[in-house]
Design a binder for these strands. Sequence first.
DNA 1: TTGAAAGCGCTAACAC
DNA 2: GTGTTAGCGCTTTCAA
Lengths: 344, 344
Amino acid sequence: MSEPRANLPRPAPAPSVSIAAVARHANVSVATVSRVLNGQQVVKPATRDAVMAAVQTLGYRVNEMARNLRTAESRLLLVLVPDVGNPFYAEIMRGIDSVARQHGYLVVLCDTGADVEREHTWFDLLRRRRADGAICLDPDTVQHALAHDNAHLAWVACAEFDPAMAVPYVGIDNRLAARDAVQHLLERGHRRIGLINTDETWLYARQRKQGWHDALTEAGITPRADWCINTHSLDYAAGNAAMTQLLALAAPPTAVFAVSDTLAIGALAGARSLGKRIPHDVAVVGFDDIALAAQTDPPLTTVAQPMRQLGETAVQLLLDLLADRGRPPAHVLLPHRLALRASA
Amino acid sequence: MSEPRANLPRPAPAPSVSIAAVARHANVSVATVSRVLNGQQVVKPATRDAVMAAVQTLGYRVNEMARNLRTAESRLLLVLVPDVGNPFYAEIMRGIDSVARQHGYLVVLCDTGADVEREHTWFDLLRRRRADGAICLDPDTVQHALAHDNAHLAWVACAEFDPAMAVPYVGIDNRLAARDAVQHLLERGHRRIGLINTDETWLYARQRKQGWHDALTEAGITPRADWCINTHSLDYAAGNAAMTQLLALAAPPTAVFAVSDTLAIGALAGARSLGKRIPHDVAVVGFDDIALAAQTDPPLTTVAQPMRQLGETAVQLLLDLLADRGRPPAHVLLPHRLALRASA
DNA sequence: TTGAAAGCGCTAACAC
DNA sequence: GTGTTAGCGCTTTCAA
């Protein structure tokens, strides 16, 4: 919908020097000024210098809004993030931001709360030409709900994606990564290995659970249902509660794999408050390798995701798409690695 | 400088429905369509409905770039943040974002690294009409360096500010808040109270040190120079190292006040790795009250800043300024409180 | 190598 | 109430 917008107060415009003023001052046409400003080589050096001098003395700055209207692009990219406060996303943002800026794009951080409705309102900015493209980090289920209405818009999926959708994406092999993490625990001699998983509306949650399952069954262990807890959020408190629940079991796990570092760090706190020592009483492996992971007590063993590179690649995919709308969607899987520390 | 921009590849434009098409389809003028779209009440209901129907069937969306060129505003706000990864700023961002969106503004998160040069390039976006205003969270010393060149631009300071500058700001009374924190420690019987401070290019660092000093001298204690450590960053590792250094003193502090929660959490880790129990061997008080503070072991006693409200107020100040460039700069101080937990 | 002029899609002043 | 029209400041043919 194109709703009538609320009657917002209008700010007063700032005083401005237009391209026409520069042209007048330099005794050339606006076309010539434009050519100089855009670095076109056809302009005679002397003319060029005169224009630059005028720009200098007048303190002229291009009005990018006008330029963008003319070129039909906003040079704005949207990043749709389910939870801005999560450090995992913060690092991806950094990757996105650096590459986007190199290409002359500005990035708007959009908090979606993993909610389809809010996603829709953000996508509407694309329709209104407010932004050129979007990078979506929301659950694959949310993306799926979006796909139909937004097929013609320029967007890519990052970290989380639905492989069946005709949208470019970049991520890691979550199933394999989770399997690696659990195998590490198995190698340390653990047989009862718990899983702190999150909401399975996330593809990564389903895939990492699979990886946990893979590793256990390959080791001849039958995963028990009560070894697996699903939290409703990724915050520290949720990890804390999940660990408490796991340790209350008659035969509690001797090791726990959490699908996110924030959950794992909460789990550490939960175990400690029950007087457990880590990794002696219970070992913990996390996922992501956020900065805090190296600072916990003990430092957290975790699956390192190439977060920065994830973000960088996502922008690249988006720019490729913008440059050629017709191209078949590219799918990129980046390598992960296990960051071994003291918690497991 | 208005540099010739790099020759960036141009994305292909998306297919589009203009306001003229809607007008044609509804048998009215573009002006009428514009009126309906902007919610002006003068339009006859029947006409309005016809327009809306045309909008619906054509799938029209306003081109905000064109609108913004005409209204001479970009509806974009900049938030200049020294460190995007710091959870303190993440929460302020949330406050900013929510209020900005309510007023039809989009927010761009700008990572400055507390660097004057990078700040300058961001401010240039204001000059090029790419953004309408900015909220600056950088050190007062950086702001000070900026003030001269950017006096005519619309910007406000948040959390950190130079009271002597003619720029609107919102913050808290850092000196008083720090004094409260240290007084709490004194009430618990501590006499040797360390300070983990950060770089004193920050006004808040200087002010909080003052508060620490105030409380001690009021209690008849002479603050010792070696009780005070200045870190070069706010990350967990810096807090860890500072605590280690403090505890190596001949007569180590029995309590430590850290000027940021991230520092305090790192300090907790540092103390623990030396086998100290908290608060028994050394008590710790932080500053900010980020989400993680309630999840540490033990939970962190800290000075709670109204982060969300800080952000909300900053936007309000900025919008006020945008609405009336001439108004005298408003200065707002928000209340803090002590969040009592187990670490002190 | 440069200039004149036609828009980009919209809002708003003015006319009817 | 509604239509006509003149720009907003820029880029980009097309001519010269």
